[in-house]
């Protein structure tokens, strides 16, 4: 298994022990001993200790490295100077390719170090291509290391309700998808949207400043268990119960397995689900802004 641009030892502490290298499987009776773990990252994080092979690459060279690997697995010649640019000698790449091909079942877990650096979506696309092409030799998959809580669930729910995983524009009454145009950062930085409902996130702490400025300008509504940075610049804040601690429901694990929550506490606040439903009902009571809308499908 290959971890690329992630630091599971610190960010997903139980990933190793619970799901990947330590577990015993039908074909990996000896657990860790039967597995090979490779870590690709720009610096030596604590995760490197767990790896059989650690490849330290130059920042921003992920795409180049993936492209070189894709060529190597197909036995094509690559330019050695171009490979050296990535910070790794060709021999290391060949070693990695040999390990990948020798695997009975390979997996690439890619983290934010890959998908948030130079190349962004293109890097993720390249990793997925690499995994797909490896299937000519052995079973190989790729999976993103998802961050907080239920982002995976958001993808899944939007996929089965709208057909697209994120950044879905429903302005025309049917879904349109175009990352870069309808993604939050772009919408906010360009100042396209004129109201915002924020739930289960704190963009006031994470967005680029122009985006935050725009959030402060327009009516922003925040649902959160706490008064967050975003709440402070919002017009409306509603305190809700904390998901998983005092609010029940379903969440998706990063491999898209839905799991039920078993809350241990009873919150004095309503759940997000209840508040969103009540906002929806309140919207329904208001006059439609387009004829035939407000819950009735536009034909």
């Amino acid at each position: 298994m290959i971890y690329w641009g992630g630091n599971p030892a610190e960010c997903h502490p139980r990933h190793f022990t619970k799901y990947t290298i330590m577990q015993k499987g039908k074909y990996t009776q000896n657990g860790r001993k039967d597995r090979t773990m490779v870590l690709v990252d720009i610096r030596e994080t604590p995760s490197a200790k767990a790896a059989n092979l650690f490849l330290q690459i130059r920042p921003g060279k992920d795409f180049e490295l993936i492209t070189a690997l894709r060529a190597l697995i197909k036995g094509q010649r690559v330019n050695e100077d171009a490979v050296n640019e990535t910070g790794l000698p060709l021999s290391k790449l060949e070693e990695l390719v040999a390990k990948m091909k020798a695997a009975r079942f390979g997996v690439i877990f890619f983290g934010m170090g890959l998908s948030m650096t130079r190349g962004k979506h293109m890097n993720s696309a390249a990793v997925l291509m690499l995994a797909a092409e490896m299937n000519a030799f052995t079973k190989f998959v790729a999976m993103p290391m998802r961050g907080h809580g239920n982002v995976t669930g958001a993808d899944v729910v939007m996929r089965y309700t709208t057909g697209y995983p994120f950044g879905v524009n429903l302005c025309r009454g049917y879904p349109r998808f175009n990352p870069g145009e309808f993604s939050t950062v772009d919408l906010l930085v360009r100042g396209d949207v004129d109201a915002c409902l924020v739930l289960g996130a704190d963009p006031g702490a994470t967005m680029p400043q122009p985006g935050i400025d725009h959030l402060a300008k327009i009516p922003t509504i925040v649902l959160d268990p706490k008064v967050t940075h975003t709440s402070r610049l919002a017009r409306v804040h509603i305190t809700t119960a904390a998901t998983g601690v005092s609010a029940p429901g379903t969440v998706y694990r990063m491999d898209e397995i839905p799991l039920p929550l078993r809350p241990a506490l009873k919150s004095p606040y309503p759940t997000d689900e209840e508040v969103v439903r009540r906002i929806r009902e309140a919207v329904k009571r208001r006059p439609a802004w387009l004829p035939g809308r407000n819950g009735k499908a536009v034909m």
Binding site: G153, A154, T184, T250, V251, Y252, D272
Partner: peptide, 23 residues
């Protein structure tokens, strides 16, 4: 909240990571 969302031409619903699938 409902007033603001209805009045807006292009409202944005954002976040969704720390909430349940039902939400």
């Amino acid at each position: 909240a409902a007033d603001y969302l209805v009045a807006a031409d292009m409202p944005l619903v954002y976040g969704l990571s720390n909430v349940t699938c039902e939400t």
